[in-house]
Design a protein around this nucleic acid. Structure first.
Lengths: 338, 338
DNA sequence: CTGTTAGCGCTTTCAT
DNA sequence: ATGAAAGCGCTAACAG
C-alpha cells in the first residue's frame, strides 16, 4: 500500500496526499476529504523508512543502559519514554548487561539507524567514554544520566550522592545513633561518593567504621556486616550504600542477636526495598523517573537547536522513612509514587 | 557519507561496494580490499533507512508491555533483547502504562515502522485483542507472553499459574500448615488462576479462606489480611498472589501479634521480594527471562517462515525457599540467577 | 491550489 | 567479475 495507490484511488496526485498526511500545505476541503476517505478505505499507513529517507529525520532516540532489570534504570527508562512519546519519538532500548562488545554493537546500530540522540547510563570509565565519543563524532547528541564522569563539557544529569548521603547520615544522627558505620562497595564511584557524604557528616561526631563488599548485593552486605562485627566494632547505626546490601546487613546482625531497629538502626539507599521489606529501615529515594524525564528533555533541547555546551542537572535523593502502618501515616510513601 | 562517495573514493562502482558490504557476491580480493579501505578512511556507515526501504526488511521487533518497571516484565524484556540482538534485530520498547490510547499510538507506530514482529504482554481483554488484531491484519506476527486469553489460535507463551499455585500450596501443607488461607486480587485473571490452584490443592484438606484486594499492592495485601483476621479466620498458613501482597499480609499479622513464620507461614508469588526481604517466606519464582527468550524465539520462527498456527508454550514457576544463611545453603537461590 | 518530478541511499537485475 | 540503471515509498521544489 503506497502513497501512489492512495492518490490513484482518491483521484488526486501524490503531492496532495502527502500534503494532507502531513497537514503542511493548503488543500481544499473537498480533496482533503477524498484523500482521507481513500486512506481509510485502503487502510493506508505511510512508510516510515521512506519518510525518514526523504526527510532525514528518524524520530527515534536510544537509551543505552547497563541493565534494564535494575529498578532504578527501568524507572529512568519510563521517564525517557514519556517525554519521547509526547514528541512522537520512539525509543530503542539498549540493555548492555555491562558487556563492552554488546555496548559497542549497539553503538554501531545507533550510528546506522541515524538515531537522533542518545541517553546514556553506565559506569563511567574509558570504555564508555570511547563509545560516547564515537557517537559525538557522528554528531549525535548524547546526554548521560547517572553516569558520573570527569568529562565536564558533557550534557548530563546526575545524582548528588555525596550530599544525599549526608542527609541519610544526618537522619541517623537525629535518630539518636551514637556510632554510625558505613557499608559500601570497594570499586564503585557511586559508593565512593556516598562514603564521602558519610565521612563529611560523621567527621566530628564519631569515629569512622567502614566495611566493603565487591558489589551491590545481599551477600556483600552480609559479609561486610560480618566483618564489622568480627572487628568488634561498636555501632548502633549503619548506613549502607544500597537497600539490598542493607538487607544483607540486617540479616547478619540479626544472626548475631542484634535487633533492628531496636539495637541498631539501618539506613539504605535506593528505596527499592526499604519501604516494603517490613524491616523498618529508612532509605534514600532516588528520583529516577524525574531523572529520565530531565535527561530526555535535555536531549531534545540539544536535538532541536541549542549550542550551549555542557548542560548539567543535579538531583538529590530524598528521605523515605519506613512506613509503620499504612492507615496511620498515609503520606509517608510519597516518594514511591511515580 | 553515502555509498556513492565510497565507490568514488575506492574507484569502483556502487554495486561493488554494496557487494562487499553485504558479502553476497564474489568480489576480487583486490577490489574488496580497496573498498574496505575506503570505508575505513571515510568512516562510512550504511544508512539503515535506505537499506530497509530497498530491501523491505527492517530488522526490528517491538515489545508491548504495560509497565517496564515491573521486575517480571523487565526480565522478560531482557530475554527478548538477548535473542533479538543475536539475530541482529533491535527491539523497540513500548511501555504503555496500562493506558489504552498510549497502546494504540504504539501500534500505529509499529505499523508505520513496518516492524517485523511484536511480543505482547498485558492484561487480556477486549482492548488488547483489538490492537493485536490490527497488527495481525497488517500481517505482522504477534506472540503474547504472559497474556492469558481465550483466543486459542494465537502464538503465546504463558505461565501455568494454576499448577504452579498447587506446588505453592503443597509446600505449605508439607510445612505442617493445617489451615491455609488465600489472599488475591479480585478482578485479576492471574489471581483467579492462582486461586484455582489453591482451591484444587486445598479441596479435601481444609476449608477455604480467602480475602481479596483490588490490586497487587502492599496495601491491598495488608487489608486483605485485616479482613481475614477480622472474620476470626483460623489459619496457620497464607498463600498470597504476589510477594508484595505477602509483605502487606505479614505486616498486618505482626501487628496482630502473630509471628512469621512461627505462628503462620507465608507463601508469595513472583519471588521479587521473598528471597531478600528477610521475612523468611517462600515464593514461586517466575522464569521471566526464559519466557522472554521463548517468546522471541517463537516470534522469529514465525517471522522467518512457518505456518504452524497457534504455537504455545507453558512454563511453570519454581519453588524458592527463603535463604537462611548465605554461607549455609549457597544453592538455595538458584532461581534468582539470570 | 494541485500536479510533475527529481531525488533521499541502497539493492539488485541485467548487461558487459 | 564488475558496472549502469531502475526502483523502494516518500517529500519538496517548481510549474502550472
Amino acid at each position: 500500500m503506497t502513497i501512489r495507490e492512495v492518490a490513484k484511488h482518491a483521484g488526486v496526485s501524490v503531492a496532495t496526499v502527502s500534503a494532507v498526511i502531513n497537514d503542511n500545505k493548503y488543500v481544499s476541503d473537498e480533496l482533503k476529504h477524498k484523500v482521507l476517505q481513500a486512506i481509510k478505505e485502503l487502510n493506508y499507513r505511510p512508510n516510515r523508512w521512506a519518510k525518514s529517507l526523504a526527510t532525514g529525520k528518524g524520530y527515534t532516540i536510544a537509551y543505552i543502559v547497563p541493565d534494564i532489570t535494575n529498578p532504578i534504570f527501568s524507572r529512568i527508562t519510563k521517564g525517557i519514554q514519556g517525554v519521547a512519546n509526547e514528541k512522537n519519538y520512539s525509543v530503542i532500548l539498549c540493555s548492555t548487561n555491562f558487556d563492552s562488545p554488546t555496548r559497542r554493537r549497539y553503538v554501531d546500530w545507533i550510528l546506522e539507524m541515524r538515531v537522533d540522540g542518545v541517553v546514556f547510563t553506565g559506569r563511567h570509565g574509558r570504555e564508555s567514554l570511547t563509545e560516547i565519543t564515537r557517537l559525538q563524532d557522528a554528531a549525535i547528541p548524547v546526554v548521560t544520566a547517572l553516569a558520573p564522569s570527569d568529562v565536564t563539557d558533557m550534557d548530563r544529569v546526575l545524582l548528588d550522592d555525596r550530599e544525599s548521603s549526608r542527609l541519610a547520615v544526618r537522619f541517623l544522627k537525629e535518630s539518636q545513633c551514637q556510632r554510625i558505620a558505613f557499608v559500601g562497595v570497594r570499586q564503585s564511584t557511586t559508593s565512593k561518593e556516598r562514603y564521602r557524604g558519610y565521612s563529611d557528616e560523621i567527621a566530628d561526631y564519631c569515629p569512622e567504621q567502614v566495611a566493603y563488599g565487591e558489589d551491590f548485593t545481599w551477600d556483600d552486605g552480609y559479609q561486610a556486616a560480618q566483618q564489622l562485627t568480627k572487628n568488634g566494632a561498636l555501632f548502633d547505626g549503619v548506613f549502607a550504600a544500597s537497600d539490598i546490601m542493607a538487607l544483607g546487613v540486617i540479616a547478619c546482625l540479626k544472626e548475631h542477636g542484634r535487633d533492628v531497629p531496636e539495637d541498631v538502626q539501618i539506613m539504605g539507599f535506593d528505596n527499592t526495598y526499604a519501604q516494603w521489606s517490613g524491616q523498618g529501615f529508612a532509605s534514600m529515594s532516588i528520583p529516577a523517573f524525574e531523572i529520565g524525564v530531565k535527561a530526555a528533555q535535555m536531549l531534545f533541547d540539544r536535538i532541536s537547536e541549542i549550542e550551549i555546551p555542557g548542560m548539567q542537572e543535579l538531583f538529590m535523593a530524598s528521605l523515605a522513612v519506613p512506613r509503620v502502618r499504612p492507615s496511620l501515616n498515609p503520606n509517608l510513601n510519597l516518594n514511591l509514587k511515580e
